[in-house]
């Protein structure tokens, strides 16, 4: 029906025992198929925002909520957590806290068992999920013996088996080592390539988000301070600095060069962009020097 999946209208929220609100006057909308990244320092309200989208607030965690949160046009207040969980899957930060069955196949089955799906259907979905993420070899493994990356992939798989249209991720790689983090990011990439999934991800690894997200939100002390595509986001130096967030290292390099007077039409924010651009720039400079053609401040890009 509607293309807008989530809508927040002037939402403020304060936890029951908190003195200050965690979110203040947040308004935004998320469309079907978008990949939205949420960035911000600790305590800026990122997880709270995610909880509002998932319905965890107000159904599971309580506090003072003003404004309206809508999912597919309906206020989340009016829907139950059970109803929402059929459409919205959540992957949390700690892999240990998301695996509570002994074997991986049972973990994948668990969410489906709760929904009363027939056995054959469950079996089919388990196989489909294992194949989708390439983790067939983990089927009979004991969950607590897996590596961090494997655990988190199983957690994502457990959601995939339920096949919601929307995935919410709360810092999915922060507890993982680099290898594990890469495998989880790769798993998310596979999800992204699937048609029309909506993804909202809270992440500190800005480098990664920049490569996948359509849109990045910056949260600072409970407010949405920036809401724009990655390239624009990375170059909003002042807002990022005020929030204590660092953009990707290459973007920082771009700032530093711009400040030093170099003119870059399209300042690179990733290594993949930076390499050809700077190679070209350096080649042109040395050609110019030998050909005595260029003047100072020659534009690049």
């Amino acid at each position: 029906m509607t293309d807008v999946v989530f809508e927040l209208e002037h939402v403020s929220f304060r936890y029951q025992r908190a003195t200050a609100p965690t979110l203040e006057d947040v308004s935004l909308s998320i469309r079907r198929g978008e990949f939205v990244g949420i960035i911000g320092p600790t305590g800026s309200g990122k997880t709270t925002l995610l909880y509002l989208l998932a319905g965890v607030i107000p159904h599971y965690l309580h506090g003072d909520l003003t404004g309206e949160v809508r999912f597919a046009g309906q206020p989340t207040r009016a829907l139950s957590l059970a109803q929402l969980s059929a459409h919205v899957g959540v992957v949390l930060q700690d892999p240990e806290a998301q695996l509570f069955n002994l074997l991986v196949r049972d973990e994948l089955a668990w969410g489906l068992e709760n929904r009363g799906l027939p056995r054959a259907e469950i079996a089919g979905r388990i196989e489909r999920t294992l194949r989708f993420f390439g983790i067939e070899r983990l089927r009979e493994r004991i969950t607590y013996d897996l590596s961090g990356g494997e655990k988190q992939r199983v957690a994502v798989g457990a959601i995939h088996a339920i096949s919601p249209e929307i995935y919410l991720f709360d810092n999915p790689t922060s507890q993982l080592d680099p290898v594990g983090a890469t495998t989880v990011i790769e798993a998310v990439r596979r999800l992204v390539d699937t048609h029309r999934l909506t993804i909202v991800m809270v992440e500190d690894k800005v480098d990664e988000l920049v490569q996948h997200a359509d849109r990045l939100l910056l949260l600072d002390r409970g407010r949405v301070v920036l809401d724009c595509p990655p390239r624009e986001f990375c170059l909003q130096r002042d807002a990022l600095e005020a929030a204590g967030v660092r953009p990707p290292q290459i973007a920082e390099l771009s700032y530093a060069l711009l400040e030093a007077g170099l003119v870059l039409d399209s300042p690179p924010i990733t290594l993949e962009e930076a390499t050809p651009l700077f190679e070209d720039l350096l080649a042109r400079r040395s050609a110019a020097r030998s050909g005595a053609q260029a003047g100072p401040g020659e534009a690049a890009g």
């Binding site: 390099l253 530093a256 190679e279």
Partner: peptide
């Protein structure tokens, strides 16, 4: 890019790049 001296930080990388230009 073959930048020298080999940088470890953004500031060093900026300086190394600018030195080539």
């Amino acid at each position: 890019l073959g930048l020298e001296p080999f940088p470890l930080t953004v500031a060093e990388a900026r300086d190394a790049l600018l030195a080539r230009m």
